Computed example of a mutant assay.
Amino acid sequence: MSTIYQDLIQFSIHIPQIDLSFHQYLIPAKEPLLIHTGNVQQANALVPQLKATLNGESLKYIFISHFEADECGGLSYILEQFPEAKTICSEVTARQLSGFGFTNEVIIKKAGEKITTDNYELEFISYPSEMHLWEGLLAMENRRGIFFSSDLMIRFGEATGLVVDADWTTEIKNIKPEQVPDPEKRKQLQNTLSQLNPKFVATGHGPCLNT
């Protein structure tokens, strides 16, 4: 656990077998926001750190970018510990959660919509995620200039607390067909991202980026 940019807290684990780091993030504001849960094992390690950081406060929101184990596999466990938290996700992700028996409150968001509080403004971007191209969401925290990139801009290796300098335009160009297989959707995503001007990229895997 480390404060990695302004007040943004990163929780990380590195899996040596695949040489990949997995990150979750917390904006510890008046209405605390968790970005991703990790899988069940990662969520078990995350909860004590969350409780210590929140110091008796509850989570307000949990943002899930898309339906995959390392983004939301530990959601039910997290919600056992923070039952008042509301999950933010796309309609497709909400449907998948429902199909797996998830019954907690979900806030469904579309591209272009926002969650605004006194401390942050989270704006959502369409994310045609991976092989099924299920509609997920990326997020830009406008007040701090933080882009939450999920499985884009991925790098292998131990990256706990690591930040490197990067060029935003190059990072966009390097989005691979393996990440967004449909060429048209990939181009649309790249065009959308090119309109952003983040100061910091909070990655799902690998080092975070100063841009």
Rank of each mutant, 00 (worst) to 15 (best):
E130W: 11
R95D: 08
F156Y: 07
T93I: 00
E130S: 10
E84D: 15
A159R: 06
V164D: 07
I154R: 10
K86H: 05
F82Y: 15
F147T: 03
F100M: 11
I78N: 03
D118K: 15
Y61H: 12
C72F: 02
R144W: 14
W168P: 01
F102A: 01
F124L: 04
E91S: 10
M140R: 04
H66A: 12
G161Y: 14
C72I: 06
T103M: 05
L122R: 06
N119H: 15
G99D: 04
E121S: 15
P128W: 10
D151Y: 10
T93W: 00
I108M: 09
V92E: 08
K109T: 03
E123L: 09
I78T: 04
L152Q: 05
E68T: 07
Y61L: 04
L138F: 10
G73R: 08
C72S: 04
N142S: 15
E123Q: 14
M131V: 12
S150Q: 13
E105I: 07
E80G: 07
E84A: 14
H132C: 10
S98I: 04
V164E: 13
Y61R: 08
H132N: 14
K60R: 15
L138V: 09
T169K: 10
E113P: 04
S129R: 11
L133N: 12
D167Q: 07
I115Q: 07
Q96N: 08
M131W: 13
G101E: 12
R144L: 15
H66V: 09
P83I: 08
E80D: 14
I154H: 08
K114M: 12
L152E: 05
I125G: 02
V92N: 09
Y61S: 03
C89R: 01
E113I: 09
C72W: 01
F67R: 02
D151H: 11
H66F: 13
C89M: 02
E121T: 15
M153Y: 09
C89Y: 01
L133K: 10
L133V: 11
E121R: 14
I115A: 06
W134C: 09
S150P: 05
E158R: 10
T160H: 14
G145T: 07
L97P: 00
I154Y: 06
